[in-house]
Design a protein around this nucleic acid. Sequence first.
DNA 1: GAGCATATTCGTCACAGCAG
DNA 2: CTGCTGTGACGAATATGCTC
Length: 361
Amino acid sequence: MSKDLTNSSLDRKNILNNNIAIQGVYEELGFYGIKFDGKYRFTKQQIAQYFDVDVRTIERILENNKTELEISGYELYTGSKLKAYKEQVFDFVRNAKDKKDVHDINVVNILQLNESELDSLSKTPQLTIFTYKAFLNIGMLLIGSEKAQKLRTAILDIVIDVLNKKLGGKTKYINQREEEFLPSVIREYNYRKEFTNSLDFYIVENKFKYSQLTDKIYKSIFKENAKEYRKILNLNSKESVRSTMYSEVLDLISAYENGFANYLKNKSENLNKKLSLSETHLIFSEFEQIMEAFVSPLQEKARSLMASRDLVFRDALHEKLKDYVNEVSSEDFYKFLGKKSMEFEKRLEENKEVFKRLKDR
DNA sequence: GAGCATATTCGTCACAGCAG
DNA sequence: CTGCTGTGACGAATATGCTC
């Protein structure tokens, strides 16, 4: 069941999108590039050398995974861009020799920029250049190279380490770490009141009405009822389901609650009577169809965000949403792990081993 | 613009290691 | 053993920039 970076593009993306962890890998690994256009850059030859494989092997990986590598930062430099890059390299080498800066000299040594290499560089008409991310991406795809194998293990160790440091191992309330959570939860609280008021008013007394209709909303939005959701996130009976939900899901719940409160009101007033719970279930099905026509794009998005984030951050798989699992975006990693997320640190509770399944393979 | 040098892209073949 | 996959070696076609 555990996955392998070499054959799971989703797992690769979920690491490469985590810029915070990538930063940690760069610092620990000691394979330094030349900074150009804001990013560290490496040539194909340097990468082949690092992994101790033939250049042809790198090329083949390039042929077979072109789009993935373009996204993570592979480029063919020609023309003015190449010219600018060359100048940057020559500048860099000159400066490094003058300054005797240890880090810079390291770079020169690692990149093996000796006289003849520089000479041929000056003549070259095109050059395949990789960013650090693309370099790691290559490492994740190279099967035969022993160094790539070691790199993969190192990456996973560092990614797990960085995540643990950022989270302190606590992921249950990671949803609360983004700025949007608080306003969403407050809005939802108000719409929830509308909803329960409406149920009180227009449905005959029945002690199951709140929970049953709330479950209907949950199922409509993310296919699970509260009980199933609790089980997947491992919540005990005292922990509130909603306090673990992402703002996008909460907003959608608000929309359903508000919409249904009004829909039920109209129905009851038209019929001029209080409704039974079983009648209300039928009414909900009607409402659900209308609602879905409006919100299905948002629903798709919420399902995808919830399923993907929970898999990466909480190591929780929503079986019924497994077709919605996608990569977690670099924006999301920043939102939930970056600087701003820290304001909510005190809310974090309980332990969870993140990315563990990635490690034991 | 022609000719030259060099990198890239890509097809092909042989070989090693490995799983069934 | 056989077939598959990843790899390395070679070479042809193509792209690009430099020099004259």
